[in-house]
């Protein structure tokens, strides 16, 4: 096992789309073990996607059991070739990313999602994620499509009281 190097934006490799996993072989198992070790060594430690370590495959790992403030979760989950099938609700949350040091921002995510994905053995599984875990899954799935939370930033200030604009804003600066 090894801790892999995490790519950091502006590394262009983070903006590529990953391809589906086809072979559920021993090389895949070894990579998942390395990915897990890398995730646990990182500042977040709760989720990681393969493109973050320069592996262009649709593999995501999450494990929220180590959170300081416990939240409901499925434990350690390997999501391979994941597809979100249903979305429900929307909520603003603060996100950061191991690939974007020293910056956090508000992002809107679905509050509940249903997802199908293969496990490490290639067996299709279905999951219901909600709350913090759903946010983490959506963040990691974005990495598979070359998206960062920076691509989804919303205002830090105007989310509560100024949702409706009654007046024309002044011309752009």
């Amino acid at each position: 096992m090894a801790v892999l190097e995490i790519l950091r934006y502006p590394d262009a490799r983070l903006k590529r789309e990953a391809v589906a996993v086809e072979h559920f072989d021993s090389a895949l198992q070894a990579f998942i073990a390395d990915l897990e070790e890398t995730m646990r060594a990182g500042p977040g430690g709760i989720g990681i996607a393969a493109p973050q370590v320069d592996c262009l495959q649709r593999i995501v790992l999450i494990d929220l059991r180590g959170l300081r403030k416990p939240v409901p979760n499925h434990g350690r989950v390997v999501l391979i070739n994941p597809e979100i099938t249903t979305w429900e609700g929307m909520a603003v949350g603060r996100e950061g990313c191991m690939s974007v040091p020293d910056y956090t921002g508000n992002v809107i995510r679905a509050e509940r999602i249903t997802l199908t994905a293969c496990d490490a053995e290639g067996v299709t599984q279905q999951y219901d994620f909600s709350g913090y875990e759903a946010r983490a899954v959506q963040h990691e799935l974005d990495h598979l499509d070359g998206l960062l939370f920076l691509d989804r930033l919303v205002s830090r200030h105007r989310d509560l009281f100024r949702r409706k604009v009654y007046q024309e804003p002044p011309p752009a600066k």
């Binding site: 977040g44 603060r94 996100e95 913090y132 939370f149």
Partner: peptide, 8 residues
């Protein structure tokens, strides 16, 4: 409210 930062 607590800001529950998620770093992924």
């Amino acid at each position: 409210r607590e800001i529950d930062l998620m770093i992924g």
